[in-house]
């Protein structure tokens, strides 16, 4: 096989990139975990959500989220008629302590929408970071390096889903890590662990045996703001057209 110098110059960088993916290895703390074998996402089943706020509390406990800030939160939508443009949305304290009771026979449709970081494949937040402090890992989780973050809050503005905040004490950007410290140990996320109805399910899109594949085939599943082409990986089942 003859490879000209020109071809070699093209092939070498490609081989280097490929080799890097082969080496995409192991976080120190989880010796049996291979990043290259996973691609994480989340399934959110709206018809199952009862708005109890267990996920919000569990997230706060697991990740020491300061009061008044949320890595995940629940919104209650109230839609009357077919006015998709102006639903009434409430989220008292992120839905942490549940929602006010809605009397039977109230007009319009009510439903709960849990929100969280969508762990976008092509995330706007990672693209705007000036110092490389936020990034998507080889296994598809968008993380923040708190030692590198300057707290400039570009990413807070860039996130189309409003999932980021500046930590009031650490003064760095903070958000959902998809419980990276748990999923690398074979556990599910704190919100999934605490959800009593299975409205949230962690999904590994690279695992052929994950029930997510069957679910995606048999249900009409959407992501939030698909027109922004973020490659969001929080998949919503039964999403109403009024949800933004």
């Amino acid at each position: 096989m003859n490879i000209s110098r020109r071809h070699l110059m093209i092939l070498l960088p490609a081989a280097a990139v490929a080799w890097k993916h082969v080496l995409a290895g192991t976080p120190e703390d989880s010796p049996n975990y291979q990043m290259s074998e996973h691609w994480w996402g989340m399934l959110i089943d709206i018809p199952k959500c009862i708005g109890c706020g267990n996920c919000v509390r569990a997230c706060q406990t697991e990740n020491d989220v300061p009061d008044g800030f949320f890595r995940t939160w629940v919104e209650q939508y109230h839609r009357t008629g077919y006015h998709l443009e102006s639903p009434e949305v409430i989220s008292p304290d992120g839905g942490k302590e549940g929602f006010p009771v809605v009397r039977e026979g109230a007009e319009g449709d009510y439903f709960f929408v849990p929100k969280m970081c969508n762990h976008c494949t092509d995330s706007p937040c990672t693209q705007v970071c000036p110092v490389g402090a936020t990034f998507i890992t080889p296994d598809g989780v968008v993380l923040i390096d708190p030692k590198y973050c300057l707290g400039c809050a570009y990413c807070v503005q860039a996130c189309p889903y409003g999932c980021r905040y500046i930590h009031p004490e650490k003064k760095v950007a903070d958000k959902c890590t998809l419980c990276y410290h748990r999923i690398t140990k074979g556990l599910t996320t704190a919100c999934c662990e605490a959800c009593p109805t299975g409205a949230r399910q962690l999904a590994d899109l690279k695992n052929p045996n994950d029930p997510i594949h069957e679910f995606l085939k048999t249900h009409t599943v959407q992501v939030l703001k698909p027109q922004m082409a973020t490659g969001a990986k929080a998949f919503y089942n039964g999403l109403d057209g009024s949800v933004r």
Partner: peptide, 20 residues
């Protein structure tokens, strides 16, 4: 190591303590 960020940050985040 993996991209335009500090590769060791992944391990540091994975090493946080589990509560559930």
């Amino acid at each position: 190591q993996y991209g335009h960020y500090r590769g060791a940050a992944i391990g540091e985040i994975a090493a946080r303590p589990v509560k559930f």
